[in-house]
Each structure stands twice: as structure tokens, then as C-alpha cells.
Amino acid sequence: MSAESALRHRFYVEAVLASVTGILAVATLISREWIEIIFGVDPDGGSGALEVGIVVVLAAATLTFGILARAEWRHAHP
């Protein structure tokens, strides 16, 4: 069995989630007003605290999904 076919579906899900959360974290750093623009609300009263929290959570999710995807990759490629 080739290494490519040995990769489980889980690897692809984790890799896509790592990419999406990473892109969203960077987008939040670039434009902190996207929540206000999309939803029309200002939940933190303009302080930016919510955006900082979102970046932290997304960065942690990116790291977690990346580590999980790497473990799947290493499992398929001993």
C-alpha cells in the first residue's frame, strides 16, 4: 500500500481545519472589525478584547490541528 493511500481521512480534515483556523487568525489580526462588519454588533464596546481572544483561540486551534495532522502523517509514513 502506498503512503498516500495509507493516510486516513482524519489527516485531511485536520489539515484543512489547521489551514482555515490559521487563515482566520491572520484575517482577524489584519482586520479587527470583521465581527462588527458581518454581524452588525460591537460586543466588546470597541475595546478590541474580543478580537484578541479570537486570535488566541484560533491560534491554539491551528496549533492543535497541525499537531494532530502531523501525527497522522507520521503514522502513515513510519
Score class of each variant (00 low, 15 high):
Ala6Tyr: 01
Val16Cys: 03
Ala71Leu: 14
Tyr12Ala: 07
Ser5Val: 04
Ala15Gly: 04
Val26Gln: 03
Ser2Met: 13
Gly66Met: 02
Arg8His: 02
Thr21Leu: 09
Met1Tyr: 08
Val56Cys: 06
Asp42Tyr: 14
Ser47Glu: 15
Ile35Lys: 08
Ile37Tyr: 11
Gly66Gln: 03
Ser5Phe: 06
Ala60Ser: 14
Glu72Ser: 07
Ser5His: 05
Gly46Pro: 10
Trp73Arg: 01
Ser2Phe: 13
Ile38Gly: 09
Ile38Arg: 13
Ala27Phe: 08
Gly22Pro: 00
Gly46Lys: 11
Pro43Met: 13
Val20Glu: 02
Phe39Thr: 11
Leu63Asp: 10
Thr21Val: 00
Leu68Trp: 09
Leu68Gly: 06
Glu36Trp: 10
Glu33Gln: 13
Gly22Thr: 01
Phe11Ile: 01
Val52Thr: 12
Val56Phe: 10
Leu29Trp: 08
Glu4His: 01
Val55Lys: 07
His75Leu: 03
Ala6Ser: 04
Ala3Asn: 08
Gly66Cys: 04
Gly48His: 11
Trp34Pro: 08
Arg70Asn: 09
Leu58Ser: 07
Glu51Pro: 11
Ala25Phe: 03
Arg8Leu: 09
Asp44Tyr: 08
Asp42Gln: 15
Ala69Glu: 05
Gly53Gln: 11
His75Gly: 00
Ile35Pro: 03
Ala59Val: 13
Leu7Glu: 06
Thr64Leu: 15
His77Phe: 06
Ala18Thr: 03
Ala15Gln: 07
Gly53Cys: 12
Arg32Asp: 12
Leu58Cys: 00
Thr21Tyr: 02
Arg70Leu: 12
Ala49Ser: 15
